[in-house]
Computed example of a mutant assay.
Amino acid sequence: MDDDGAPFWAYAARGELRVQACADCGELRFPPRPCCPHCHAFGSEWRRMSGRGAVWSYVVPHPPLLPAYAAQAPYNAVVVELADAPRIRLVGNVVAAADARLDSVDAGRLRIGAGVRAVFAELPDGTTVPRWQLERP
């Protein structure tokens, strides 16, 4: 975690999905960075998002991408396009509930464009991460 991204994780720990915005031109940007790529200003603020989005892409890795997830394979890894900011896409997993295992949703239920909403899960190291639930379970 770096200084630019630290607020993202602090808001996630509070159950809020926020995206960095330029304090001068208002453009949203992700990943967080110190300078606006549009107007080159250095001021920023964090805007709350609705937490709604759509599956933009997904993959079901066989074998798992990371050895620590082997017991939960097969699981999904998704790219979600935010409804409030269509140019912003976040990576995560679609799960049945915030604290559910990564394999809790059958991959056959995933579709490009499927509506999802953010939920937040605390990992064993104390980091809270956004995950996604299907809007139509």
Score class of each variant (00 low, 15 high):
M1V: 15
A6Q: 13
F8C: 01
A10S: 15
Y11V: 06
Y11H: 14
V19S: 04
C22W: 10
A23K: 01
G26V: 04
L28A: 13
P32C: 10
C35G: 01
C35E: 10
C36R: 08
P37C: 04
F42S: 07
G43Q: 11
G43W: 05
R48I: 02
M49Q: 12
M49G: 00
A54Q: 06
V55A: 01
W56A: 11
W56E: 11
P61T: 06
P63M: 10
L65E: 15
A68C: 03
A68Y: 14
A71W: 12
Q72C: 13
A73I: 07
P74A: 12
A77S: 13
V78N: 14
V79D: 12
E81K: 05
A83L: 05
A85I: 13
P86L: 15
P86A: 14
R87A: 14
R87N: 12
I88Y: 02
L90T: 13
V91C: 09
V95I: 07
R101L: 11
D103Y: 09
V105M: 10
A107C: 10
G115I: 11
G115L: 09
V116W: 00
R117G: 00
F120W: 03
F120P: 00
F120A: 06
E122G: 01
D125V: 15
G126T: 14
T127Y: 10
V129M: 09
V129F: 08
R131Q: 05
W132A: 06
